[in-house]
Design a protein around this nucleic acid. Structure first.
Length: 784
DNA sequence: ATCCTGATTTTTTTT
DNA sequence: AAATCAGGAT
C-alpha cells in the first residue's frame, strides 16, 4: 500500500510481529479465528489489528466494537491502541460485553418498557430478589437455597430462555418450582425498572431480535467486531455477536434458520485450554465450532510464547495433555530452560503462608520487586492466612477480589440512595435504604409500602411520598416515612429533575442544572444522617466505613471531571459502576505483592508466581471432582502456571482448616502430572519407603515412589472391616469423599462416592474410569 | 421496632 | 472461624 498516507506507520506497525501474528493483524474482511496460546501476544495482536484497520481505512474509530473480558483489559487495550495510533480513540466501542449492552440498552430499552434510568442489580441484589420471589411463591427455604434457584435462573438466561420457555422445558419438581420463582422474579424486576447482569445480555438480544431496524442500525454501525477471550463467551453473547455480524450456526431445534445475513467481519481471539468460566454459562463450543459457524474463516494459530521459560511451558503442556479433546497446540519459547519449579509441602496453611512470605522476603532481598510477585490460590477465603503473615512481616500487598469495594455495605447503601433517586421504581434500593440509618421504618412498614405500591402499580417512591394513604401504617411510621421522603425529594431536586418522578415522564421533564455526582453524594451522606450515624458509633470499623465513603465521593468527582455532559450523568454513573469488577482496581505501579484467585489472574503475567493450596479438594476443588468439571479445574491450573514468566512455586499443606474443621488433603494430582525433572523439592522429607525408590529425590508422592508403595503392598496388612457406621472400626478403614487411593490393579484414583454397604466409588486416573468397589475386600489403600 | 441469641451455613471461580 | 438468619424476648 505505497500510496497509503500511513504507509510509514503501517510498516512500523507490522515490523516486530511474527508471521502468524502478522497474518492475523492484516487479515481483511470476513471471519477470523485466532487461536492464541498463553503468552503468545494476543492482546498485542488485537491492538495492532485495530490500528491496522484504521490505518488502512477499513474502519473509522466509531465503527469498531472491541470486546474484552474486564474493564481493566479494555482500558489497557485502549491505551495500547492509542499508543499505536498516536491519537485518542474517541468513539471506539472498546469495553466489556456487559458495558456495551448497558450502553445499547440505555438508548433502546424504552422499546422493552424500561426507562433510560433502569437500575442494574448485582449478584447480591439479584439474590435478595430471588429470595423474595421464592418466599412469595412459598418455596421451603430449607430445601432449596436462593443461591441454587438463582443459579438456575441465571443459567436459563444465559441460554436465552425466558420464564415461559424454562417452564416448558422443566422436567423435575425442582425445575417446576424454579419456573414459578423465575416468573415472579422477572415480573418484579421489570416492575422495578431493573435488570440483573444476565438481563443486560438477554434484553439486548431481545431488542435486536424484536426490532429489525435497531439490529440493522447497530449491525452496520459496527463494521468490525473483535472479541477477546472468546472461549469464555456464553450462548447469549454468541447470539449477540451473531445478530451484529451475521452468520452463525443453524439451530434446527428451533425449527427455523437462525443464521443471519451480515458483513461477518468478526475476529475472535481465544484459547480453549484457558476456558475457565463454564460455571457462568461460558460454552467452549463457541470457539471449538467457530469453523462450523464460519466455514470460510481464516484460522491463525499463535504458538510461540514470549512470556515463560521452557520449563514452565513444558510443565503446563504436560498438565493440559491430560485433558481430552481440545485444539492441538504446542507452546514453545525461546527464553531458555530457566529455573526449576519449586515444590513444597508444609504442615498446615500457616506453615504454608510462612513459607510463601519467607520466600518473598528472600526474593526481594535478592533484588526482585514486590510488584513482580503474585500469589495465586483457588478460593478467595485462602487469602486471609497469607495476608495475616504479610502484615506481620510488613510486606506491602494488594488483594484482588474477595470483598470488593463496591460490595461493602456502606458503599452499597450510598449507591442505593442514588439508584432510588434515579429510578423511583427501584424497590431493592428503597428497601436497603429506608431504614439505614435507623429511622423507625421497620420490616412491617416496609412490607406495607411495597405491597401497596404493587397493588396500585405505582412506583415505591410515589407511594412512599404519600404515607397517609398507605393502609395499615401506624402514626409513628407515617411520620418517619414523611421525614425520610422529604429528604429524598430534596436530594432528588439536586439532579435537576423537575416534575413527577413517574416512568416516562422523566426523560421529557425539564431539567434544571444538575449538581455534580460528587456533590450529590455528599449531600446524600450528610442530609440522610448516614455519616452522622457512623460517627456516633465511635469505632475504628465505622471510621473505616467513613473513609470508604469518602473514597466513593472521590470516584464521583473523577467521573464528574470526565463526563461529557450532565444529561443523564447520574444514570451513566450508576450503570457504569455497577459493572466495575475488582479486577479493574488492580494497580501495577506500586511495590505491592499481588494476591488473587487464579481466575482473577487470567490475562495477567508475573515474573514470579506462587500457587498455594495445591491439594486435592482445594485445587482441584472438592466440588469439581466429576469429569467435565475436573477438566476445567485442570485448565485453571494451566492458566495459573502460564501466568509465570521465570519462576513458579507450588505449595501444599498436609492439613488445612476449612469451615473451622481440619481437613486433610493429598497433594494435587495436577502437581503429579508435571514431569519429574521440571520440579525441585528439598530432600529433608524423603518418603519413609525411600529405599524402594533410590535416586528419587521427591517425597513419596512422586510417580516413581508411588509405584514403589504399590509394589510394597502396604494394604495387605490386615484390611480392616469396612462396614460403615460401625463405631468400633479403626479410623482408617472408611474411605472419605475426595480421598486419593491406590488400587493394586487400576492404579491411583480418587473416591468420588461413598455408598451404603461398604461400597465406594473410585475414579481412576489412568483411564478416567469410575468403578464401584467393596472397600473391605478390594485391594485399595489410601494414598499415604 | 429493635435487640439478642442460638442455629445454620459458608468456600469455588465472576461480568 | 465467621457470617448470616430466624425466632423470640424486650
Amino acid at each position: 500500500m505505497p500510496e497509503n498516507p500511513h504507509a510509514e506507520h503501517l510498516q512500523e506497525l507490522l515490523e516486530d510481529l511474527n508471521e502468524p501474528q502478522r497474518e492475523a493483524v492484516t487479515h481483511g474482511e470476513g471471519p477470523l479465528l485466532i487461536l492464541a496460546g498463553a503468552g503468545s501476544g494476543k492482546t498485542r495482536v488485537l491492538a495492532h489489528r485495530i490500528a491496522f484497520l484504521i490505518y488502512t481505512d477499513q474502519a473509522q474509530a466509531g465503527e469498531i466494537l472491541a470486546i474484552t473480558f474486564t474493564n481493566k483489559a479494555a482500558s489497557e487495550m485502549r491505551e495500547r491502541v492509542e499508543r499505536l495510533l498516536g491519537r485518542a480513540t474517541r468513539g471506539m466501542w472498546l469495553m466489556t460485553f456487559h458495558a456495551a449492552c448497558a450502553r445499547i440498552l440505555r438508548a433502546e430499552a424504552q422499546r422493552l418498557g424500561y426507562t433510560r434510568q433502569f437500575t442494574i442489580y448485582d449478584q447480591a441484589d439479584s439474590r435478595r430478589l430471588t429470595k423474595r420471589s421464592a418466599d412469595a411463591v412459598g418455596v421451603d427455604p430449607k430445601r432449596y437455597t436462593p443461591a441454587a434457584i438463582q443459579n438456575q435462573i441465571s443459567a436459563a438466561k444465559n441460554l436465552l430462555r425466558d420464564a415461559a420457555e424454562y417452564r416448558q422445558a422443566a422436567a423435575s419438581p425442582f425445575e417446576e418450582m424454579v419456573a414459578d420463582v423465575y416468573d415472579v422474579y422477572e415480573r418484579d424486576l421489570h416492575r422495578m425498572n431493573a435488570m440483573d447482569f444476565d438481563d443486560l445480555l438477554f434484553r439486548t438480544v431481545n431488542v435486536l431480535e424484536l426490532f429489525e431496524d435497531v439490529r440493522e442500525r447497530y449491525a452496520s454501525a459496527f463494521a468490525h467486531v473483535l472479541v477477546d477471550e472468546y472461549q469464555d463467551t456464553n450462548h447469549a453473547q454468541y447470539r449477540l455477536l451473531q445478530l451484529l455480524v451475521g452468520g452463525g450456526r443453524q439451530e434446527p431445534a428451533r425449527g427455523r434458520r437462525t443464521s443471519l445475513p451480515g458483513h461477518r467481519n468478526l475476529a475472535v481471539v481465544g484459547d480453549d485450554a484457558q476456558s475457565i468460566y463454564s460455571f457462568r454459562g461460558a460454552d467452549v463450543r463457541n470457539i471449538l465450532e467457530f469453523q462450523d459457524d464460519f466455514p470460510d474463516a481464516r484460522v491463525v494459530k499463535l504458538e510461540q510464547n514470549y512470556r515463560s521459560t521452557e520449563t514452565i511451558l513444558s510443565a503446563a503442556n504436560a498438565v493440559i495433555a491430560n485433558n481430552r479433546g481440545g485444539i492441538a497446540k504446542r507452546l514453545w519459547s525461546e527464553l531458555g530452560q530457566g529455573e526449576q519449579i519449586q515444590l513444597r509441602t508444609l504442615e498446615d496453611e500457616h506453615a504454608e503462608a510462612r513459607f510463601v512470605v519467607g520466600e518473598i522476603e528472600r526474593l526481594v532481598d535478592e533484588g526482585a520487586s514486590r510488584a513482580e510477585i503474585a500469589v495465586l490460590y483457588r478460593t478467595n477465603a485462602m487469602s486471609r492466612v497469607i495476608e495475616d503473615t504479610l502484615v506481620r512481616r510488613e510486606i506491602a500487598y494488594q488483594v484482588i477480589g474477595g470483598t470488593k469495594f463496591y460490595e461493602r455495605a456502606e458503599v452499597k447503601d450510598a449507591i442505593a440512595y442514588l439508584s432510588l433517586i434515579a429510578n423511583p421504581f427501584d424497590v431493592v434500593s428503597f428497601t436497603r435504604v429506608a431504614n439505614s440509618p435507623r429511622r423507625g421504618i421497620g420490616q412491617t412498614s416496609l412490607a406495607r409500602i411495597i405491597s401497596h405500591a404493587e397493588a396500585l402499580g405505582e412506583s415505591v417512591w410515589q407511594v412512599a411520598a404519600e404515607p397517609e394513604l398507605i393502609p395499615g401504617l401506624g402514626a409513628a411510621a407515617i411520620k418517619a416515612l414523611r421525614r425520610f421522603m422529604d429528604t429524598m425529594q430534596e436530594l432528588r431536586s439536586m439532579t435537576g429533575v423537575l416534575g413527577d418522578p413517574e416512568r416516562g415522564e422523566q426523560a421529557a421533564a425539564p431539567r434544571a442544572a444538575a449538581a455534580p455526582i460528587a456533590d450529590l453524594l455528599e449531600a446524600v451522606l450528610s442530609h440522610t444522617g448516614y455519616v452522622e450515624a457512623l460517627e456516633a458509633e465511635r469505632t475504628i470499623e465505622a471510621q473505616g466505613r467513613i473513609e470508604n465513603l469518602q473514597q466513593l465521593v472521590e470516584v464521583g468527582r473523577e467521573f464528574d471531571a470526565i463526563a461529557d455532559d450532565d444529561e443523564g450523568a447520574l444514570d451513566v454513573f450508576l450503570q457504569q459502576i455497577a459493572l466495575v469488577a475488582d479486577a479493574d482496581t488492580r494497580s501495577d505501579e506500586e511495590g505491592l505483592v499481588t494476591l488473587m484467585t487464579v481466575h482473577n489472574a487470567k490475562g495477567l503475567e508475573y515474573p514470579i508466581v506462587f500457587i498455594a493450596g495445591c491439594e486435592e479438594g482445594v485445587f482441584p476443588h472438592s466440588r469439581a471432582l466429576d469429569e467435565g468439571a475436573l477438566e476445567e479445574e485442570r485448565r485453571l491450573f494451566y492458566v495459573g502456571l502460564t501466568r509465570a514468566m521465570r519462576q513458579v512455586y507450588l505449595s501444599s499443606a498436609r492439613r488445612r482448616a476449612v469451615f473451622g474443621a481440619q481437613a486433610y488433603g493429598m497433594r494435587s494430582r495436577f502437581v503429579e502430572e508435571i514431569p519429574f525433572d521440571l520440579l525441585e523439592e528439598p530432600q529433608e522429607r524423603v518418603f519413609r519407603a525411600g529405599a524402594l525408590g533410590a535416586g528419587l529425590a521427591r517425597t513419596g508422592f512422586s510417580n516413581g515412589v508411588r509405584a514403589g508403595v504399590a509394589a510394597g503392598g502396604s494394604w495387605s496388612g490386615g484390611s480392616p472391616p469396612g462396614r460403615r457406621g460401625s463405631e468400633t472400626q479403626p479410623a482408617q478403614s472408611s474411605f472419605r469423599l475426595g480421598e486419593d487411593v491406590i488400587h493394586a490393579a487400576f492404579g491411583d484414583g480418587v473416591v468420588t462416592g461413598v455408598e451404603p454397604g461398604g461400597v465406594i466409588v473410585v475414579r481412576f486416573a489412568d483411564d478416567g474410569s469410575e468403578r464401584k468397589l467393596m472397600a473391605e475386600y478390594a485391594p485399595v489403600v489410601r494414598r499415604a
